[in-house]
Design a protein around this nucleic acid. Structure first.
Lengths: 341, 341
DNA sequence: TCCTCGTGCGCAAACGTTTTACCAAGCTGG
DNA sequence: CCAGCTTGGTAAAACGTTTGCGCACGAGGA
């Protein structure tokens, strides 16, 4: 018997002197299988000695389940996105799945890459980090036609279920903090208009102002883009407003980095002359000048929940958009907010 | 003939009225296959109409090639790491591969996750972002025993080939900038001692000082950790040194963020009283107070090259550690460096 | 007329699993 | 003494590809 140099289960079976099917069932802990304890032990020993590892592709093929989830993000160097990835990564690993990372802008221009990622046998579900871009919704909808798909950090769009954070509450928390410091002239510095993120935070801002009988003014509302240069430009515009606000609510921490730079360059002291608070926290703004007051949202949990729901086939629960609010939004008061001058 | 509701190639074959094998050959562009143009067209049309996509797992199984690469990183919220990921991602997509992301600290504690990622049929090669931690080398070496493996941003350790940047040159560039501004008392603020990253940047610092006949002083050398709090602590210590340096070379931009905060809190003005320059660039330090002078290194290229080498089976070229220096290190002069007071 | 050869395609095995179906041997009860 | 049940397994098909080999058919040459 010139033992075949086969690999995998076959090799284990040969060494243990049993059939391949028995090995499979024993190693996978199939309770229904009848085998003598002695045989079981022999099989397990053989597997151990040969260092048997199941073949991922073979399992995926046979089980019609890839054991992997896809995650499409926009910009990895955005700390917000990084935090979502971390959450998803941790949850996927915990549940014995692997995570397949892709980039939305690359996918947008590359049909082959899209097919490669979403074709059969690659992933069992997809998380798409929504950005409110047009192509984004279209691609996510296409994906949803093939696979369980979840938009992450977006409201439900084009019929794709979605997970989001309590942006309105976060905004209200931030604005309330400003009002409690005595500010009455609170401006809004948002991101790209049209995205629902913007709408929700803007709504929270407006609601909280209204709750205190404070006025929104058109010249105190600036919405440009979700990046630091836009924050710079936006703050520059707000500082030129007549009358000048005494506080600014910034809808995103990345935007706030640019905004603080603009204030600094304009010679406006934060927080002495102007208070600034932003939604989302990032490690580096805690070390800035001044350290930025922010509202922390459970981004990690967002990724975590997305993975769980996809794996549990539970994504329909988010059909109308599900709000993740378990670790509630938390105000982190640092050095960029102070009592009204 | 009750056409089976089969999927994949089978369905295409049925619709085109040919065999599965012929479809496979035609669609994969096999030149050696002989088929009438008319048949070819019929097959292609059927594939198009059915929206045929090859089954990833089935191909992986048959071809004994997963079509995926693994990337293990340490901390996604570190902008340096994010940039490497981006580079690897882009290159992988370009070459029709997918990228499987994992986290080193998770893998360290979880043998199942390690096996899941590295078991047969999952990935064809692995990039491991080195950090100089002990467990890191051990795990990377274990991986290298199973798969083509490349350490990224590390020198070759435990026999595992590695790609790294020209850290020494970057350090020299930064220090030379300080010297050219007239500084003679230049301190070194590094990261966790022992890691080869630290050694290489420290060597560059020392070499450049020596080239200008400047002295290193023990009290001007601080090495703690690769994070912002360590930067804070380190700078605090340097500011207490006797005599106090007039410039600090910081081995990493993340550390520099903490260092700047410490200087600020101590009432030391940067750059008027103290110049600071750091290795690696990150978008947010350009907006800080002051904007940080940095040396940009081709991190993106690092990820890019790692993917290429693995896919080309070329990783042996890096057996002794290969230095990526194509876009050369570039000094970005901003506001944290000035002439000696 | 027979042989050969090129053309155009089909058969079947294999990749490593999982799972359904089945079977031989031993035991038990009547 | 045998029907039927339990025990301890085995055989084979299937998942969707790829690929080596073979085969039928018609044309052309001897």
């Amino acid at each position: 018997m010139t033992a075949g140099r086969r690999t995998g289960l076959h090799a284990v079976a040969e060494r243990a002197g049993v059939s391949v099917s028995l090995v499979s069932r024993i190693l996978s802990g199939d309770d229904a299988v009848r085998a003598r304890p002695e045989t079981r032990e022999r099989v397990r020993a053989a597997a151990r000695e040969l260092g048997y590892q199941p073949h991922g592709a073979a399992r995926a093929l046979r089980l019609a389940r890839a054991g992997a989830l896809g995650l499409v993000v926009h910009d990895m160097s955005n700390p917000i996105h990084a935090e979502i990835i971390r959450g998803a990564q941790a949850a996927a690993t915990d549940r014995g799945q692997v995570l397949l990372l892709s980039d939305a802008t690359q996918l947008a221009g590359n049909d082959d890459a899209f097919a490669q990622l979403l074709g059969p046998g690659r992933i069992d579900g997809l998380m798409w980090q929504g950005s409110g871009e047009e192509y984004d919704d279209e691609l996510a909808a296409r994906a949803a036609g093939r696979l369980p798909t979840l938009l992450v950090n977006s409201r439900s769009r084009a019929g794709v279920p979605a997970l989001r954070l309590d942006d309105e509450r976060a905004a209200r928390l931030a604005v309330r903090h400003l009002v409690e410091l005595g500010h009455r002239d609170v401006a809004y510095l948002g991101g790209r208009p049209g995205a629902d993120l913007t709408e929700r935070r803007r709504a929270g801002y407006a609601a909280e102002l209204a709750a205190h009988d404070l006025a929104e003014r058109p010249q105190w509302t600036v919405e440009l883009e979700w990046d630091a240069p836009a924050g710079y430009a936006g703050m520059t515009r707000l500082l030129a407003a007549e009358p000048r606000p005494t506080a600014v609510f910034v809808a995103n921490v990345v935007v706030a980095v640019g905004a603080l730079a603009a204030a600094r360059e304009a010679g406006v002291r934060v927080p002495a002359d102007l208070s600034v608070v932003a939604v989302h926290d990032a490690w580096f703004v805690a070390h800035g000048a001044p350290p930025l007051t922010t509202v922390r949202l459970p981004l990690h949990r967002l990724g975590d929940m997305a993975v769980s729901m996809l794996l549990d086939g539970d994504q329909a629960r988010a059909a109308d958009g599900l709000v993740i609010d378990d670790p509630a939004p938390e105000l982190l008061v640092r050095g960029s907010t102070a009592a009204r001058p």
